[in-house]
Every structure is written in structure tokens, then in C-alpha cells.
């Protein structure tokens, strides 16, 4: 009983995710799988970002750079070197992690708006660079030979495979996110978020701790980039380093509740469902972006803690269950 109470937050989180994942597997429909793929991808990206944004309080506007770079490195290994998806994903994760480590040493010194600006600059510089980088196909990018999918049971099978791999990665992100949230390392991050100078005086080695949070938040997006573009069959600079995608991740984290484990799941689910609804609605189809903008504004102005944060404030009984 006490174990259940202790891990209630994790159990609720995993439960919510399991329901999401199982839905396409039960129905077996491609369209359901595709919808859920988009949602899970958002959940995993938003939860990764949350480690930096929600726990540490650093606003990375260009977080998509890790998705893009990882995607490119992995895609290159698959298409030009004939490596397997697994090795390529590993390489994508590692390269994103290494980039985050190097960047962390440099730009995490910047605070507040300056850090946010620097991350935008990094993403744009990387996009422009890849655009000129011939081994990665320059502006036209790269495509996968269709025969590659044969190793994974054909194109149709490969789509299901991608789905299950994504589901597994999403579980890993959430468990990592939960472990960080409840660990000493995570407490150090929260202390930095609240007051970095005070945290340092209390002994938190902020430069180190921040860097590792950055690395942790970058690895899975790097792997997801490989998976996404493997499924996609081609990669180009614009979709790989789309700044707007970065900001969508932030919106999802905010919507659900930054700094909580469950928040990014609900936020990603809510955001993608809403987007799907707006895109197919005859009334809102043309102005879906504007409607989403109004909603974002309402959340920022009136519910800054997000859904989970708001519930935790209003209904203290739920605090243990919603983490």
C-alpha cells in the first residue's frame, strides 16, 4: 500500500501513457496509429524539453536543433553507410548529447532572455550550415532507398515498428523524467530554477548540473529525429530545424504544466488533439494558427502553471497522484 502511495505519481503517468499507446494496437488502424505517432512524438519531445525548461528554468527556444542534428547524423549513417536503424539512432542520440554538452559549457552561462536568444541562434546557424553541407545533401537533403525497409519487414511493417520503438522511447523519457524529478540531481535543478545564485551558495554545482540537464534533454530528441526521418523516408534542412516546432514543444510543456512529469503528456495530447480538430474543422481550418494563438495567450495570461499545476494548486488531495 505504501509503495503504491509512494509511486502513485509514476503509476498514474505510466497508466495514462499506456492507454495512449494501446489504442492503435487494439484497433489496428493505420490512421489511428499515425495520429498517435504524432502525439507520442510530441509527448517524448515535450517531456525531454521539460527537464531543461520545467525543472531547470532555462528556456531553450531552439531545442529542435537536437532533433534535427540527431536526425541528420542517423539518416546519413542509414542512407550513405548502410547502417541499421538501431546503430543510427544510437549515433543520433550521442551526437545530440555531445552537442548539448559542448553548447552547455558555452551558452548556459547566459541567463534568461539571452540564453533563449542564443538557442535560436544555434538552431539557425546549424540549419544554415547543413544547408551548405554537401555530404548531407545540402538544401535538397537525403532520401532513403526504399529497399532499406526490407530489412524491417517491408514498408508497412516498418511503420508499425517505428510506432513501437517510439512508444518505448516515450516510456524511457517519462521514467527518466520521473527519476530526475524525484532525485537529488533533480532537486538541484529545481533549486537552480528558483534562484541560481542562492542554489550555488547552498552548494549546488550549477554549471555542471545545468549542463547535464541540457544533455539529458537533448539525447532522446536526437534519437527521435532519426526515427522520425527513417519513417519519413527523406530529410531536408527546413523540416529538420523548424524553429516553430521548437516553440510548439514549449507550448505543450506550458499547457500541461512545466516542471511536472505528467504535464507534458497532457499538454502534448491536448495540443495535438486541438490542432487535429482545428485542421479538420470547416470553420477554423483557415485560421487554425490564430485560434491556437488565442488559446496560448489565454493559458499564458490566466493559467501559467498549466493544467497539472493548476490542479495541484486547487486540489491538494491530487498532489501525490499528479507529479
Amino acid at each position: 500500500m505504501s509503495t503504491v502511495r509512494k509511486y502513485l505519481g509514476l503509476i498514474v503517468t505510466i497508466g495514462v501513457l499506456l492507454m495512449l499507446v494501446a489504442w492503435p494496437a487494439i484497433t489496428g488502424k493505420d490512421i489511428t496509429r499515425e495520429t498517435t505517432f504524432t502525439i507520442l512524438l510530441s509527448v517524448a519531445l515535450a517531456s525531454s524539453l521539460n527537464i531543461l525548461l520545467g525543472y531547470t528554468g532555462y528556456v531553450s527556444f531552439g531545442h529542435v536543433v537536437f532533433f534535427g542534428l540527431g536526425g541528420y547524423v542517423g539518416f546519413y549513417l542509414m542512407s550513405a553507410q548502410g547502417m541499421s536503424l538501431w546503430i543510427s539512432m544510437l549515433a543520433g542520440g550521442v551526437s545530440a548529447g555531445v552537442l548539448a554538452f559542448l553548447l552547455g559549457k558555452a551558452i548556459l552561462r547566459l541567463r534568461g532572455g539571452y540564453f533563449a536568444l542564443a538557442t535560436i541562434g544555434i538552431n539557425e546557424a546549424m540549419r544554415a550550415f547543413i544547408n551548405n553541407f554537401e555530404p548531407f545533401g545540402g538544401p535538397t537533403g537525403m532520401t532513403l532507398n526504399f529497399s532499406v525497409y526490407r530489412d524491417y519487414g517491408g514498408a508497412g511493417q516498418a511503420l508499425w515498428l517505428s510506432y513501437y520503438v517510439l512508444a518505448a522511447l516515450t516510456f524511457i523519457v517519462l521514467i527518466v523524467s520521473y527519476l530526475v524529478r524525484t532525485s537529488k540531481f533533480g532537486l538541484g535543478l529545481l533549486a537552480i530554477r528558483e534562484d541560481e545564485d542562492a542554489a550555488e551558495v547552498m552548494g549546488v554545482n550549477a554549471p555542471n548540473v545545468k549542463t547535464w540537464a541540457y544533455v539529458l534533454s537533448a539525447i532522446i530528441p536526437g534519437m527521435l529525429g532519426v526515427l522520425f526521418f527513417f519513417k519519413n523516408g527523406s530529410i531536408e534542412p527546413a523540416p529538420a530545424f523548424r524553429l516553430h516546432f521548437s516553440i510548439e514543444m514549449i507550448v505543450m510543456v506550458m499547457l500541461g504544466g512545466q516542471g511536472t512529469v505528467l504535464g507534458p503528456i497532457l499538454g502534448a495530447y491536448g495540443y495535438q488533439s486541438l490542432r487535429g480538430f482545428l485542421l479538420t474543422s470547416p470553420i477554423f481550418k483557415d485560421i487554425q494558427l490564430a485560434v491556437a494563438g488565442v488559446l496560448l495567450l489565454v493559458i499564458v495570461l490566466f493559467v501559467p502553471a498549466g493544467v497539472v499545476g493548476w490542479l495541484r494548486q486547487r486540489v491538494p488531495v491530487l498532489r501525490r497522484a499528479l507529479q
Binding site: G113, I250, A290, G293, V294, L296, V300
Partner: peptide, 14 residues
């Protein structure tokens, strides 16, 4: 900072 960044970004989207 995040609040003003997102508030102005929502205006961008609108």
C-alpha cells in the same frame, strides 16, 4: 521571461 516570450509568440501566431 518565458511568459512574455510566449505571450508575444501567441500574437505572432494570431
Amino acid at each position: 521571461h518565458l511568459s512574455t516570450l510566449l505571450a508575444t509568440f501567441s500574437i505572432n501566431m494570431i
